[in-house]
Design a protein around this nucleic acid. Structure first.
Length: 445
RNA sequence: GGCCCCAUCGACUAGCGGUUAGGUCAUAGCCCUCUCAAGGCUACAGCACGGGUUCGAUUCCCGUUGGGGUCGCCA
């Protein structure tokens, strides 16, 4: 590539960052990083009505969360600013003047329209190949509007102007823009500029493949991952796998591994259905390998989001509690259900499990477990484990027979962290209290 | 409907003329195990159809069907 690689992500501030948009941003970012190029963020806020500061923040926070840092754009500056279309009026005026002088524009009820040359246009696309569009019929390809009667600009025009002004070398965007490409090529022609390399990437479809993913669909918003207990690396990894693959059967790849492998000719042409299950699976993989301090930090956030109050617990208690939950959940948001018992004495006991395990036969065993725990010199994992195993042997039962009722009494559930570890974290006092509280649930006869 | 793109297990994909069509998610079973996960093993499951080209098509060409996109003074 002779020209420096300059790519851009050009979202409209709608207050919503779509996964499809995030994936487009990701591919642009990867391409820039792969070629030592520049990744530009440009905010296409020509539609003043729905343009708010909060909506722009949604874009920033979504990209930042995914680790997609931009080299030029809002907040970081650059030589081709401003990076908000709403602030680039003077530039657009200049280009309109140029088009006007070339006789390419005409007035239509106050709106400005671009007169199509009515020829065949070939779009050269790095992923789709060369595609010819016959633009000769105005019925199927009406002249595009460039400016509304109120003076505001239309997407096609400002998009092309900005790409020219910002020296964008490759336009990587969703395939839904493919049919816009010939219009844009006409504009480049009228402006006397060579078009950039286009790369229309496949769309992300709903889970059933019926249509583009839209606002209503689960997982369509980046914000939903931030709030939903996902790790950004996992979501980013999953997004890489939609329309691209390393071709060597790897699924879990760090972004550093993806960068050198990423290129436009490896991008698929087929739209991909979105599978939140697989994304969650990957999230579990990442969660499992997270350093403990980061897992604890993210776990705290997730618990707090779920409404679990952590303020009354020491940092070491919360850390130890969360450590026993490591590798056990796929989503951080599952933590409150999985380990919530650590932070509240007020949990219900699973009724079905109570019926099965709080039996008359188990009552004396439960009592024996309590005595064994009471008698322990020190209440730590090895001591607890040794004592309970010894007791099981002594009573001639398998250890589960002892552990099920114990787990039920101390956590309310039959599923949870390692029994010995959770008892140690809970501490003797709390453990015995919970056992005492459960005692009356056993049948007396 | 016009135009454009696409077509391998339910999903994401590998394959770029000769393969027992591979991997991953999901599903089922087994093993491991203090539960739940994780992990290991196994199973299930795919080249849309019809013509060509070729000694030979999942792979190349054409058509059909199917799916998606797009036809704004939205972006």
């Amino acid at each position: 590539m002779s020209n420096p690689v300059r790519v851009r992500f050009a979202p409209s501030p709608t207050g919503f960052l779509h996964v499809g948009g995030a994936r487009t941003a990701l591919f642009n970012w990867l391409f820039a990083r792969r070629h030592g190029g520049t990744f530009i963020l440009r905010v296409e806020d020509t539609d003043a009505a729905r343009n708010t500061a909060e909506a722009v923040q949604v874009i920033y926070s979504g990209l930042r969360w995914l680790g997609l840092d931009w080299d030029e754009g809002p907040l970081v500056g650059g030589n081709c600013g401003p990076y908000f279309q709403s602030e680039r009026n003077a530039i657009y005026e200049r280009y309109v003047e140029q088009l006007h002088a070339g006789g390419h524009l005409y007035d239509d009820g106050g709106a400005l329209r671009f007169r199509s040359p009515r020829k065949k246009v070939t779009v050269h696309d790095a992923v789709c190949g060369s595609i010819e569009f016959d633009m000769s019929d105005p019925a199927t390809h009406p002249d595009m509007t460039i400016r509304r009667p109120d003076g505001s600009w239309i997407f096609h025009f400002v998009n092309v102007v900005d790409d020219i002004e910002m020296k964008v070398s490759h336009v990587i965007r969703g395939e839904d823009h493919l049919s816009n490409a010939p219009k844009h090529v006409e504009l480049y022609g009228a402006l006397g500029v060579l078009p950039p390399v286009f790369a229309h990437i496949p769309l992300i479809l709903k889970k059933d493949g019926k249509g583009k993913m839209s606002k209503r669909d689960e997982g369509s918003s980046v914000a939903s991952y931030i709030a939903g207990g996902y790790v950004p690396e996992a979501v980013r990894n999953y997004l890489c796998l939609l329309g691209w693959s390393p071709k060597d059967n790897r699924e879990k790849l760090s972004i550093e591994e993806v960068i050198p492998l990423f290129d436009l000719d490896r991008i698929n042409r087929k739209n991909a259905a979105f599978d939140l299950e697989k994304c969650a699976w990957l999230n579990g993989e990442y969660l499992r390998e997270l350093p403990e301090d980061r897992f604890v930090a993210l776990g705290r956030e997730a618990l707090t989001r779920s409404g679990v109050s952590l303020s009354q617990f020491s940092e070491s208690y919360v850390g130890a509690a969360l450590a026993t939950c490591r590798g056990k959940v796929r989503l951080l948001n599952e933590l409150s259900a999985y380990g919530g018992f650590y932070f509240s004495d007020d949990f219900p006991l699973n009724a079905e499990a109570v019926a099965k395990h709080f039996t008359a036969e188990n009552a004396p065993r439960f009592q024996a477990v309590r005595e064994s725990l009471t008698a322990l010199a020190s209440f730590d994992v090895p001591s607890i484990e040794t004592a309970l195993k010894a007791l099981a042997a002594q009573l001639g039962v398998k250890i589960v027979v002892l552990l099920h009722p114990l787990r039920l009494a101390t956590t309310g559930s039959l599923a949870g962290p390692s029994m010995y570890h959770l008892l140690e974290v809970l501490g003797r006092e709390k453990s015995l209290d919970r056992m005492d509280r459960a005692m009356p649930r056993f049948p007396t006869a």
